Amino acid sequence: MIIQIKKMNESIAKEILHWHYDPPYDFYNNDCSDDNIKELMNENFKAIVDEYNNLVGFFCVGEAAKVPAGYKFGVYHAELIDMGLGMNPHLVGKGYGFEYCTFILDSIKKQFGNTPIRLTVATFNKRAIHLYEKLGFVYEDIFTSEFGEFMTMIKHQ
């Protein structure tokens, strides 16, 4: 699959917000509200499309990638590049994850150099955690919020 970054726009944001994941990944389903559209339109969010301009997923860096409850547990104390991502539910579980995440990591490295990257993932998402470990991320911390339990993982460049 040939993928590239595309600027986020309202149409893409709405498509993402209409994605529906099967349980237990329905945790990642969102409402297509004005606030959620506005959040995705933040300059820190980028869309990823394939060679046919089909939406493959998105990623974000910075504050948008953090789970706010993590602050009270001190998990975001270190100055790192925070990364968040999502993949089209029609592509999840089909073997594209490693290539997809490598593309995102390479893009972040081009922008930020060798600064370590941190991500936050729901602890139930064993499939994602396994992928992140294959990509070189290691467990750093764990915390809970009203939505569930999360872990932070770090990758040193």
Rank of each mutant, 00 (worst) to 15 (best):
C60T: 14
D82G: 01
V92D: 10
V92S: 06
L91Y: 08
Y76L: 01
A64I: 12
V75T: 10
H77D: 13
V92A: 12
E79H: 13
V56L: 00
N54L: 09
K66W: 07
H77Q: 11
K66L: 01
L85R: 05
V67L: 10
H77A: 11
G70S: 05
Y76A: 02
D50Q: 07
F59A: 07
I81G: 00
G84L: 03
A78S: 15
V61T: 15
A65C: 04
G84S: 04
K72Y: 13
G93I: 06
M87I: 14
P89Q: 00
P89T: 06
A64Q: 14
I81M: 02
G84V: 08
H77F: 02
D82C: 07
G74S: 01
H90G: 13
Y52E: 11
G93L: 00
G70H: 06
G70F: 02
G93Y: 01
E79C: 08
F58M: 02
L85C: 02
V49S: 04
D50I: 04
D50T: 10
F58E: 05
G74F: 01
V56D: 04
I48Q: 02
E79K: 14
K94T: 15
M87Q: 12
P68T: 04
H90Y: 12
L91W: 09
H77G: 05
D50H: 01
G86N: 08
F59W: 07
L80Y: 15
N54F: 08
K72F: 09
K94Q: 12
L80A: 08
V67T: 12
A64E: 15
P68L: 04
A78Y: 14
E79A: 14
L55Y: 03
F58Y: 13
I48S: 09
N54P: 04
N54Y: 13
K72N: 15
A78L: 11
E63T: 14
N88V: 07
N53T: 14
M87L: 10
L80H: 15
Y71R: 11
